Amino acid sequence: MPSETPQAEVGPTGCPHRSGPHSAKGSLEKGSPEDKEAKEPLWIRPDAPSRCTWQLGRPASESPHHHTAPAKSPKILPDILKKIGDTPMVRINKIGKKFGLKCELLAKCEFFNAGGSVKDRISLRMIEDAERDGTLKPGDTIIEPTSGNTGIGLALAAAVRGYRCIIVMPEKMSSEKVDVLRALGAEIVRTPTNARFDSPESHVGVAWRLKNEIPNSHILDQYRNASNPLAHYDTTADEILQQCDGKLDMLVASVGTGGTITGIARKLKEKCPGCRIIGVDPEGSILAEPEELNQTEQTTYEVEGIGYDFIPTVLDRTVVDKWFKSNDEEAFTFARMLIAQEGLLCGGSAGSTVAVAVKAAQELQEGQRCVVILPDSVRNYMTKFLSDRWMLQKGFLKEEDLTEKKPWWWHLRVQELGLSAPLTVLPTITCGHTIEILREKGFDQAPVVDEAGVILGMVTLGNMLSSLLAGKVQPSDQVGKVIYKQFKQIRLTDTLGRLSHILEMDHFALVV
């Protein structure tokens, strides 16, 4: 994948999101292997301009796509893939009243899908469409860049269908997702969380590099694949309309690839034109409109599966009536509230959605109805927002919020430890010299600072030695090549209790 991002070429006709291997024109390309080798690009942008032909009021008969309808489940399912879809609609009884809503608040519980998330729908649909058009064949390999849930859905379907599955996901995604993927037989590649989507090191860039190296491999490409919004247009939206008897006044959905909100909203605009569509985008993402909503100094966020630093091709923002931004604290607070007060075992993005819903639905009156999409299960986040310690460490809970008995030293300040200034190293000294210094002084790690004293990161003896043994660096290389740029900081005025929580999850903390 090139470091400079080429513009994806656009073909003359058809839909841009065809499933299957992508040609340089962004659509299915038939021909000899030699032709494909000559024409197939190194990668295709996940934010390529959409060429979708959908228009409100256009006859369904003019759609270029294969459409399906929700099917009634048999008493005995032939395999677990038949437990994807037909998820329950559940009334939220307490939270709406707590925040003064007059309307009825309903939750579409997508964590009841077989793999635990709304992404099971698009995973199965992308595979079925690729099999139907002859792209996927027995023994082929599926590769997908994902925040985890699409990966789980694909790995689940691949396990049943017999495909090899490789999932490329950023490091910030939970260990629970990784464990589930491994249990399903998927191979996992992790990428830096802070890598831009168009960087060769991003999950998108690495996935395309693997595709170019592995024979008979395919990126189904949830960011561009029409099967993504079509899955929701054909099934999720129809289920909502049936469950609500066609009567709903507002739908609120958090947005990642945009397939969920695009597919549902398009069908609702056709069948229930008075329904307002509300999009939820986390602070630090750029999906919301108008652009002024996205202006923030924050560039990272903890909530998973929603928000991006690019506009995915499948996201149709014209069908969203209003956007709201959400933050991590309210997302996790509301997710825990949904679990504790409503018994809905949902993930953090569901918290984002409901946090926005109780604001947006203030305009609705008694007798009206708001539906929220709860995308995934708490299963993926047992060591994250479900953990009091994690919430404390991230600053989303305060010590006084917890009532468990603490040891005698818990409320003492870090400054009472009488710490001395640490050994520091410059980023320009060599790895070999740094190892000598650390061994001589008896230290395992040291902060790396520039000549102005600005902290650049941390270097550890173990990481340097393993990097040297693996051949990633040489003793003569500058130590700046092996620094940890993500590390926890703590102030002298913070409590030892807070430091204790940090050290339970990290090997060190830097006192500043």
Results as ranks from 00 to 15, higher is better:
residue 4 E to Q: 14
residue 5 T to C: 09
residue 7 Q to C: 12
residue 7 Q to F: 11
residue 8 A to N: 10
residue 9 E to C: 14
residue 11 G to V: 10
residue 11 G to T: 09
residue 13 T to E: 09
residue 16 P to Y: 12
residue 17 H to E: 11
residue 18 R to L: 11
residue 19 S to E: 06
residue 20 G to V: 13
residue 22 H to W: 06
residue 23 S to L: 03
residue 23 S to R: 10
residue 27 S to R: 07
residue 28 L to P: 09
residue 28 L to D: 10
residue 29 E to L: 12
residue 29 E to Y: 12
residue 32 S to K: 07
residue 32 S to A: 12
residue 35 D to A: 15
residue 36 K to F: 15
residue 37 E to F: 14
residue 39 K to C: 06
residue 40 E to S: 10
residue 40 E to N: 10
residue 41 P to W: 10
residue 41 P to Y: 10
residue 49 P to I: 08
residue 50 S to A: 09
residue 54 W to K: 06
residue 55 Q to Y: 10
residue 55 Q to A: 07
residue 57 G to E: 13
residue 58 R to V: 06
residue 58 R to L: 15
residue 60 A to F: 06
residue 61 S to Y: 13
residue 67 H to S: 14
residue 69 A to Q: 10
residue 74 P to I: 07
residue 76 I to Q: 04
residue 78 P to R: 04
residue 79 D to V: 14
residue 81 L to Q: 07
residue 82 K to G: 10
residue 84 I to C: 09
residue 86 D to G: 11
residue 87 T to W: 00
residue 87 T to K: 00
residue 87 T to F: 00
residue 88 P to H: 04
residue 89 M to F: 08
residue 91 R to G: 15
residue 92 I to K: 04
residue 93 N to C: 13
residue 94 K to V: 06
residue 94 K to L: 12
residue 98 K to H: 11
residue 98 K to V: 12
residue 101 L to R: 00
residue 102 K to Y: 04
residue 107 A to Q: 07
residue 108 K to Y: 07
residue 111 F to A: 02
residue 112 F to D: 02
residue 112 F to W: 01
residue 117 S to N: 06
residue 117 S to R: 04
residue 118 V to Y: 02
residue 118 V to G: 03
residue 119 K to V: 01
residue 120 D to Q: 07
residue 122 I to V: 03
residue 122 I to A: 05
residue 123 S to D: 05
residue 126 M to H: 06
residue 128 E to Q: 11
residue 128 E to N: 09
residue 129 D to P: 04
residue 129 D to S: 08
residue 131 E to V: 11
residue 134 G to C: 07
residue 135 T to N: 13
residue 136 L to C: 13
residue 139 G to R: 14
residue 139 G to S: 10
residue 141 T to P: 09
residue 142 I to G: 03
residue 142 I to E: 00
residue 143 I to S: 00
residue 145 P to A: 06
residue 146 T to E: 04
residue 147 S to H: 01
residue 148 G to N: 06
residue 152 I to L: 03
residue 152 I to C: 02
residue 152 I to V: 08
residue 153 G to K: 01
residue 153 G to E: 01
residue 156 L to T: 04
residue 159 A to D: 02
residue 161 R to K: 14
residue 163 Y to F: 06
residue 170 P to F: 03
residue 170 P to E: 06
residue 171 E to G: 05
residue 172 K to A: 02
residue 172 K to V: 02
residue 174 S to A: 06
residue 177 K to E: 04
residue 178 V to L: 04
residue 178 V to Y: 04
residue 179 D to T: 08
residue 179 D to P: 05
residue 180 V to F: 05
residue 181 L to Q: 00
residue 181 L to V: 06
residue 181 L to P: 00
residue 182 R to F: 07
residue 184 L to V: 03
residue 184 L to P: 01
residue 185 G to C: 00
residue 186 A to W: 00
residue 186 A to H: 00
residue 187 E to I: 10
residue 187 E to S: 09
residue 188 I to C: 02
residue 188 I to E: 00
residue 189 V to M: 10
residue 189 V to E: 07
residue 190 R to D: 01
residue 191 T to M: 02
residue 191 T to L: 02
residue 192 P to K: 06
residue 199 S to N: 09
residue 199 S to G: 05
residue 207 A to P: 01
residue 208 W to E: 06
residue 208 W to M: 08
residue 209 R to I: 09
residue 210 L to A: 04
residue 211 K to Y: 06
residue 213 E to D: 13
residue 214 I to Y: 05
residue 217 S to W: 02
residue 217 S to Q: 06
residue 218 H to E: 07
residue 219 I to R: 07
residue 222 Q to I: 00
residue 224 R to W: 03
residue 224 R to M: 06
residue 224 R to C: 07
residue 225 N to W: 00
residue 226 A to S: 12
residue 228 N to W: 00
residue 229 P to D: 04
residue 233 Y to I: 01
residue 241 L to Y: 13
residue 241 L to M: 14
residue 245 D to P: 09
residue 245 D to A: 02
residue 246 G to R: 15
residue 252 V to Q: 09
residue 255 V to W: 03
residue 256 G to T: 00
residue 258 G to Y: 01
residue 258 G to F: 00
residue 259 G to T: 00
residue 260 T to E: 00
residue 261 I to G: 03
residue 262 T to K: 02
residue 266 R to N: 05
residue 266 R to D: 02
residue 267 K to C: 14
residue 268 L to A: 04
residue 269 K to A: 11
residue 272 C to D: 11
residue 274 G to T: 04
residue 275 C to S: 14
residue 275 C to W: 08
residue 275 C to H: 01
